[in-house]
Amino acid sequence: MKILVCIKQVPDMESRFKVDSAGTWYDTTELVWRMNEYDEYGVEQAVQLKEQTGGDLTVLCIGPDRVKETMKKALAMGCDRGAHVNDPDYATRDPFEIGAIIAEYASDKGFDVIFTGMQSQDRGSAQVGVLVSELLGIPAVTTIVDFVLEGSTVNVKRELEGGIKAKVSVTLPALFTCQLGLNTPRYPTLPNIMKAKKKELLSIPVQDLLKVAFRLETVSMQLPEKKGGGLVLEGDAGELADKLITILKEKTGVLAK
C-alpha cells in the first residue's frame, strides 16, 4: 500500500498577527511555526494505516526551507520519507495552484491513499484536498472523523453539523480530508526523533511541479475592524473578579443584587 500525507506549516494561531509591507499577507517574521492541526490527524491516520498494512508512507509539504522542521515531526511520527516542494512564494499560491502541485507530484506514483487536512488554520479554504482528487480523477471523502480499512474498501464517517455523522464507503484509490478529532495524534518519542534525522528528505523545486496559472489573487489583507462594544478589563485577578461581579449584577439578571 502506497500512502501520501500532505501537510502544511502554519503559524501558531495564538500569535499576534501583523499585515506585511505588501499588504497582502501576514508578516512572517517573529512567528512560531507548527504543523497545521488538521494535518496532525492526517499524519496519525496515515501512520496507523502504514502500520496496519505494512505500507510505504511519504509526507509532502510545500514551502520555504523552514517547513523542513515541521516535516521532521511527521517523519518522527512515522512517515518513511519526506518530499519537500521548495517554494519561497508559497503564500501567494491559490488553492488551485497548491492542489495542482500536489497532483503533479502524485500523478506517476500510484498512491492508494492520500490524506490531507480538511483545511489549513491560516487560510482555511478547504479546497486543496478535493482539488487534488479531481485532478487525479480519484474519489475524495471530506471531513472524516473515523477511518476503517477492510480489504480494498474504506469505511469512513463524515462529520456534519449538529453532531450528526454520515457513514460512507469508498473503494481505493481515494483521498480523504481529515477533521479534528479523527484520532489521537502521537507525540514523537526521542528515539523516533533521532531516527527521523536519517530518513530521506528530498527537495523538489516548485518550478518542476507547477504547471497551472492561479485563479484567485489577494487584493489586500487587513486586521478586522474592532466592533468596539465590549469592555476590556485588565489587572489583578482578585480585583478583576470584583469588577466582573459588579458588572454582572448591573447588566444581567443572573446574580442577586
Partner: peptide, 26 residues
C-alpha cells in the same frame, strides 16, 4: 475560482477570514 467562507462583500470583492478570524482578506 472559489472564494471560501465569504463573510462580506466590499466594493464587489468577497472578503474571507484568515488565521482564525484574526485577519481578513479581500
Amino acid at each position: 475560482a472559489q472564494f471560501s467562507e465569504v463573510a462580506d462583500i466590499v466594493d464587489g470583492d468577497p472578503v474571507v477570514p484568515a488565521c482564525n478570524s484574526k485577519l481578513r482578506r479581500r
